[in-house]
């Protein structure tokens, strides 16, 4: 197909969009709302993932030793821990140190500790830093197997909970995605059906003068793609402003939350939305053309 022909068909698509302005507006809005929700979910999910990995990288593994391990055995244990692959730093915290830290943390309520009667229930411990956040779990598990180690903690609860939430979010997102895609497909194919109907005379004439199916269908396909990508674009712009506002607020109030920085993240999301919109538009009009256009 010649470029001039493509340009002509493109122009025809725009003319048709303008002619059915109300319907075009309705479908662009539907696409925009659907993709906005989709994009918001995407941003939420990606931020959760980001938070998980940020927290993981901060996680320290603490190995609590059995009270029976003393003296040389402790030194040996420290050496063994150092030998575990991925371990970068090991600090020994004695029972006494642990207790004084605890006392500090309790502050005003330190008097509670008097109930202990000079006994120290806290174990000796090693604080271990790991090279790579992904190694936290396997390292912790390896150390837990060692002789003399009572328990190993690595803040797994928070990380696991976040993981769990991300998983739920992902499932919820997929279900929602299904519904939204369905709704969007429906409205776009319906819009295209109306334009096919409005232009049936033209289609008939095209047929009689020998237009190929591709030639007849292309403007409608383009129309659907324009509807979809404009809807995606509207959603992308809205998300850009919403997300930058959110980042600003969060930074003001909850500075400790790790959120994905605006650039280039939001451009990728925006681009994806426009792309998805265009794809949905193309599929929507293809559905309509195969059902309502007999050529």
């Amino acid at each position: 197909m010649k470029i001039r022909t493509s340009l002509y068909l493109m122009k025809e698509a725009f003319v048709s969009l303008k002619r059915n302005a109300l319907m075009s507006f309705a479908s662009i809005s539907t696409v925009a709302v659907s993709l906005l929700v989709l994009g918001a979910f995407g941003i939420l999910g990606l931020n959760m993932g980001y938070m998980v990995s940020a927290l993981e990288s901060k996680v320290e593994v603490t190995a609590y030793m059995q009270d029976s391990v003393e003296g040389d055995a402790l030194t040996q244990a420290e050496a063994d821990i150092r030998a575990v692959s991925g371990v970068s730093e090991v600090t020994f915290v004695t029972k006494t140190e642990a207790l004084s830290r605890f006392r500090e943390r309790l502050g005003d309520q330190a008097s509670m500790l008097e109930a202990l009667d000079d006994q120290n229930p806290l174990p000796n411990a090693f604080e271990i830093k790991v090279d790579n956040p992904e190694l936290v779990k396997p390292t912790a598990q390896a150390i837990e197997q060692m002789a003399g180690v009572e328990t190993v903690k690595y803040g797994s609860e928070i990380v696991d909970q976040l993981f769990q939430m991300t998983k739920i979010l992902r499932i919820l997102g997929l279900v929602l995605l299904g519904f939204l895609v369905f709704a969007t497909l429906f409205i776009i194919s319906n819009t295209i059906r109306l334009t096919v109907f409005a232009r049936r005379k033209e289609i008939g004439i095209m047929k009689y003068v020998g237009a190929t199916n591709a030639f007849i269908r292309l403007p409608f396909l383009m129309e659907g793609m324009i509807l979809g990508s404009v809807g995606g674009g509207v959603a992308a712009v809205a998300l850009y402003y919403a997300y930058s506002a959110l980042l600003y607020e969060v930074h003001q109030v909850l500075a400790f939350l790790y959120l994905v920085p605006l650039h280039p993240f939001i451009y990728i999301i925006g681009g994806a939305l426009v792309g998805i919109g265009m794809l949905i538009g193309a599929i929507g009009s293809a559905i309509s053309l195969s059902r309502y256009m007999d050529v």
């Binding site: 047929k207 009689y208 003068v209 020998g210 237009a211 190929t212 199916n213």
Partner: peptide, 13 residues
């Protein structure tokens, strides 16, 4: 069926 449009080009209606 695909060739029909091309045959139609030799006809005026």
């Amino acid at each position: 069926k695909k060739k029909i449009p091309y045959l139609r080009r030799s006809m005026g209606v």
